[in-house]
Design a protein around this nucleic acid. Structure first.
Lengths: 244, 244
DNA sequence: TGGTTTCAATTGTCTGACATTAGGCGGGCG
DNA sequence: CGCCCGCCTAATGTCAGACAATTGAAACCA
């Protein structure tokens, strides 16, 4: 692991890259202990501060964890689904909010992905999956629920559907798509009538999943996508009218 | 923005979280300049090193960029698709390699997601999409191609399909699924006969996309998934036999 | 006016110190 | 003998101060 003196990257970035490469290539395996900060600073011929900045970069990506004390140090972290999930949500949310992604584009992506997992969920759903879906549907029907709580329950419902597919890689991938939509959805006001329509479609999805009916699930999802789009367009149109 | 003195998190992590929250809540908008490191160290009542470690954490997630010089500083970065794409690939690759995700699981996820975008690609594909697909198919048929180059071309082919859907959010989401498979695919030896079968299916996909035939594209993708799975199983079985 | 120099602000890096933590070791004591 | 307590040590966490490098802007001069 050597540094390129011609690179215009900061030293801490170069060191982080070098260690990241070592991890991704398998040279450093999970739970392996990195040399101490002092050793690394000698190894790369830089100061300890620079090494520390490099390690913080890696820690921010959950690639390493650090532990204090005599037997402590920096260890290669096993990237958990939870960690990946959290990063995915952060990244997707910012990507959508900072790049003026249209509601249509985000919505299309989300439902396309959900339709991808629906058939699997219909095959593999557990009683637990169904119970969660039913619970969230019930919650969505409670009177006095705020729009934000309604959206949160909506996300929970869809997460249950995704997790029902029983494929952790898919769950991780879909996390971003589903959760990144939440800020956009939160801009919408859900009247009682609109909620009813959504709840009916949620029920249709739950029913389809329960009886292993993939086609019905796909149809209900497509209907929900159309409903969501219509809803958003109405809200945005009304807002534009009020402004103009 | 205040720190919680009761938290057991490191100060640099707390500061990074505080700034990240400010960015995600919209309090700090794109291209906004953060206070200088000295100002931040006063603001949070910590040393400059600690502030720097916090900023490096954010830089590692592409949330900020820094610039030296008189008018320099740390600026909120617009998260580009490229940045998000790169992070996504890193995370997905590590997730798969570190968690002993089976070939079956990864394969299932990848093809489920690809089937989600295929109908959109059939609708929106451009001449460019088709040209890239055909080019990669041609490349895959070249004699003397190494297994690695064959895999790389395979990835390029599938990326073209995904990008053909014309939805950048979907492209970003699928990046991880497609690219994370590459290390797994690289473990496979592709004989001439196996390559022929794959190339034929790629051609079937390209043809279907060209004539806007979503169903044919879905069928070809499913066939490709089955072929890939069979291929992997044969290789792993052969390896197990050689060992045992 | 236009080019050049100087300046000042800011990040990047280094050094050395001390604080904090936590496991290991050994000794004292029941 | 076994358990508990305190010391030691190695490591990370934090701090303070210094200097180097960079870069835009202001001041200056021809």
């Amino acid at each position: 692991m050597k540094l390129d003196p011609n690179s215009d990257l900061e030293l801490s970035a170069q060191i982080a890259d070098a260690i990241r490469d070592a991890i991704m290539s398998g040279e450093l395996i999970v739970d392996a202990r990195l040399p101490s900060e002092s050793d690394l600073s000698e190894l790369f011929a830089v100061s300890r501060s620079t090494v520390r900045e490099a390690l913080k970069r890696l820690a921010a990506q959950s690639l390493i964890r650090t532990q204090r004390g005599a037997t402590g140090g920096a260890f290669v972290n096993r990237l958990s689904y939870e960690d990946a999930y959290a990063q995915q949500v952060t990244t997707a949310t910012l990507l959508v909010s900072m790049n003026a992604v249209s509601f249509e584009t985000a919505c299309e992506a989300r439902y396309a992905l959900e339709r991808a997992v629906a058939p699997l969920a219909c095959t593999r759903r557990t009683p637990d999956t169904l119970a969660t879906m039913r619970t969230e549907i019930f919650r969505q029907g409670q009177p006095g629920l705020t729009d934000e709580a309604f959206c949160a329950s909506d996300v929970a419902f869809h997460r249950a559907l995704v997790d029902g597919a029983g494929n952790p890689v898919l769950s991780y991938q879909l996390a971003g798509a589903v959760e990144a939509m939440q800020p956009l959805m939160n801009m919408i006001t859900f009247t009682a009538r609109k909620r009813e329509a959504i709840i009916a479609l949620h029920s249709a999805i739950a029913d389809a999943v329960e009886r292993h009916d993939a086609q019905a699930a796909l149809d209900a999802l497509s209907a929900l996508e159309a409903e969501t789009l219509k809803l958003a367009r109405d809200v945005f149109a009304a807002r534009a009218a009020r402004k103009g």
